[in-house]
Design a protein around this nucleic acid. Structure first.
Lengths: 338, 338
DNA sequence: TTGAAAGCGCTAACAT
DNA sequence: ATGTTAGCGCTTTCAA
C-alpha cells in the first residue's frame, strides 16, 4: 500500500461528508472555509452531515495545502522565572481569541537550545514571540526572515519589539537612595546576554553619575535566589549600603543571605529589586521597579497578531515605562557615618 | 495554479536535497527516518546536502502522511499560579528531549475554555498532560479515547495520573498545630472543582478528627493573594488561632491582610500554606506543605512519553508524598488561654 | 540498497 | 453556486 494506512483510527474526511451530503469535496471544503460563496442551504446540509459523522478538521492537511498552521510560538528563557508566566498567559489568551494555538518553548537560558526550538517550531507556526531571547542578532534576523517575530526586551532595529524601559524606575530608585543618604550601591547583574541587564546597567550608571552615587557592579550570571544569597559576601566586602538587584528573585536571595548573617534590612542595608514579581510577599516587603510583564505580553501579542492579520511586517518599537515601588526594604535613612 | 503556490518563501524540500545529493526522494526520506536501511555513505551525502541547503522538516507533511504530529499539549488552569511553571518546564524539557514540541493551554480556571483548548489541540497533538483539569470526568474520558491523557492532581479510574497526596503533610501539620496548643483552625479552600482542594479538605478533616482539632472551612474560590487578604475578616471572626490555606499564594495574602491589621504572625495566629511555591520569600518565612510540582511534571511527562513510545495505554496511578516544612509562621506556642 | 509511484486530507485555480 | 483537477511535502509499498 501507499501513504498512510491508518490515520487516527476512524477519521472522518471531507470525502465522507461529500458522499453523505451529495456534493463534491470542494463544496464541503468551502462550506467550512468560505461559506459565503455557497448556497446557504448547501452549507446547512454539509454541516449537518459533518456533525452527524463527527467530523474534525485535519489541521496537518490544511496546513500542508495552505502553508498556514494557525499556531504561534512563544519562547522564554525560563518559564519558572516569575517574570514570564504573566506574559505567556496574555499571549496565550489573545492568540487563542484570534484562533491561534500556542507552542511554548523554554530555552533554559541557553542560546543553542533556543535555536533548536525556534527552528524546530518554525515549521509549524505562523510567527514567534521571543521573550528575552539569548540568541545572537543574526540568528534572530534569520528567523524573522522566515516567520514574523516579535521581540520582548531585545532591541533589534527593523524588527517588531516591545521594550520595558528601566530608566524611569532606576532614576527614581537612585534619587530615592540619594535622598536616604546612600553614596555607594552595588548592582547585582543578570545574564550578560540579557538585553534587560544591559539596559539596567547602563540606565543605572547614567542616573548614578548624575546623582554622584558610586555603583559597583557584581556579576551574577543566571538570576536565582541562590545566586543572590551567595552574593552577600561580595556585597558586604564592598562596603556599599544599598544593593539593586537584577530582579526580585535575586533580591529575595540577597535578603535571605543577609538575614542568615543577622544583617538587618533596611537598617543596615537597603535592597531594591526589579520586575515587581514577588509583590509584597518578601520579608521585609521589597522596594522594586515595576515591570508589568503582563502588559508586555499584551503588546507583543497585539503586535504579532496584527502582523499576521494584515500580512504586513512591522518594525514597531513599543516601550513600556517603569517606576519605583517603594516598600519596606529602603525605609531607613543612611546619612554619612550613620 | 493549483494547491499551494507559495508556502514559506523559499522552503527547502526533500526534492531539493534529492537533486543535490543525486538520489531519489525516497532515499532522502529514509536518510532521516530509517537511516539504518541505507548505505552509510549515502546517508552522509544526503545529510550534507540537507545541511548545506538549510533543510528543515515540514512536520505538517509528515503528519499528513504518517498521522503522527510530534506534538504534545500541556494544559493548566493558570500558568501564573506558581505551582504550574515548574511542572510545565519539566514536561517541556522531557518532551523536547524525546523529539516532541509542546503546546501550552491556559484555561483560566474555566471548564469550557479547557474543553475548547483540548478539542482544538487534539487535532495536532499525540497526547495531553492535563494539570488540575476543571473538566468533568466524562469529557476527560472522551478526550482520552482519542488521544492518551495523563492527569495531574485528578484521580480518574483507568486513566494515567500523577497525584500529589496531601495527607502526609497535613497529618504533620495537624500534629504540629496540636503540639503548639491550637484547638481551632480555619481551612481556606480552593476552587470547588479542584481535586487538590477536595483531597486537602478531606485529609485535613481526617487528621483533625483524630487529633481533636476543630476545622472551620472558609470557601475562597479562585486562589489568589487578594482572596487571602480579604478572608482575614472571616478568619478573625471565627476566633481560630491557626489557618491552613489552600496554597502559598493564598497564605501570603492572609499574612499581608493580617499585617495590615497589626496582627502578628505567629504570635497571634499561625499560618500554614501548601505547595511550597513561595519558598522562604514571605514574611515571616511560611510554614508550608511541600508539593514538588517539578516532580509531578517529571512523572507526568514520563508517563505520557512512555505511552507514546510503547503505543500501550497506561492506567498507572503515581502518587507523590508530601511533608510539612516548618518555618517561622508557626513558631509561637498557643496554649489554652495563652 | 535504492527508485518509482501512489496517496495521506485538504485547498484553490479553472471551468462550468 | 458547484464540480474538476492538480498538487502541498512527506512516507511507504512494491519492484528492481
Amino acid at each position: 500500500m501507499t501513504g498512510n494506512r491508518k490515520t487516527a483510527s476512524t477519521s472522518v474526511t471531507i470525502g465522507d461528508i461529500a458522499r453523505v451530503a451529495g456534493v463534491s469535496r470542494s463544496t464541503v471544503s468551502r462550506a467550512f472555509s468560505r461559506p459565503e460563496l455557497l448556497n446557504p442551504e448547501t452549507v446547512r446540509r454539509v454541516k449537518a452531515a459533518a456533525d452527524e459523522l463527527g467530523y474534525v478538521m485535519n489541521h496537518a492537511a490544511r496546513a500542508l495545502s495552505t502553508g498556514r498552521f494557525g499556531n504561534v510560538a512563544v519562547v522564554v528563557p525560563d518559564i519558572a522565572n516569575p517574570f514570564f508566566p504573566p506574559l505567556v498567559r496574555r499571549v496565550q489568551t489573545l492568540a487563542d481569541a484570534a484562533g491561534y494555538a500556542v507552542f511554548l518553548g523554554d530555552s533554559d537560558e541557553i542560546a543553542d537550545r533556543e535555536a533548536n526550538l525556534t527552528s524546530r517550531l518554525s515549521a509549524q507556526v505562523e510567527g514567534f514571540v521571543l521573550a528575552s531571547p539569548r540568541l545572537d542578532e543574526d540568528r534572530i534576523r534569520e528567523l524573522d526572515a522566515s516567520r514574523p517575530v516579535v521581540l520582548v526586551n531585545r532591541d533589534i532595529e527593523g524588527l517588531a519589539r516591545v521594550l520595558i524601559d528601566p530608566s524611569g524606575g532606576l532614576d527614581e530608585a537612585v534619587a530615592h537612595l540619594h535622598r536616604l543618604g546612600h553614596t555607594r550601591v552595588v548592582y547585582l547583574s543578570g545574564p550578560r546576554e540579557s538585553w534587560s541587564d544591559q539596559q539596567r546597567r547602563a540606565a543605572l550608571a547614567r542616573a548614578a553619575g548624575r546623582a554622584g552615587l558610586e555603583v559597583i557592579v557584581q556579576e551574577l550570571g543566571r538570576p536565582s535566589s541562590a545566586g543572590g544569597r551567595d552574593a552577600v559576601g561580595g556585597i558586604l566586602a564592598s562596603e556599599a549600603t544599598a544593593v539593586i538587584a537584577f530582579d526580585d528573585v535575586v533580591a529575595q536571595g540577597v535578603m535571605a543571605g543577609l538575614a542568615l548573617r543577622g544583617i538587618d534590612v533596611p537598617r543596615d542595608i537597603s535592597v531594591i529589586g526589579c520586575d515587581d514579581t514577588l509583590a509584597s510577599g518578601t520579608h521585609p516587603a521589597l522596594t522594586t521597579i515595576s515591570a508589568a510583564s503582563a502588559a508586555a505580553g499584551d503588546a507583543a501579542a497585539e503586535l504579532l497578531l496584527g502582523v499576521l492579520a494584515s500580512g504586513e511586517r512591522s518594525d514597531a518599537r513599543v516601550t513600556i515605562a517603569t517606576h519605583l515601588v517603594v516598600r519596606a526594604t529602603t525605609e531607613a535613612a543612611h546619612t554619612i557615618g550613620g
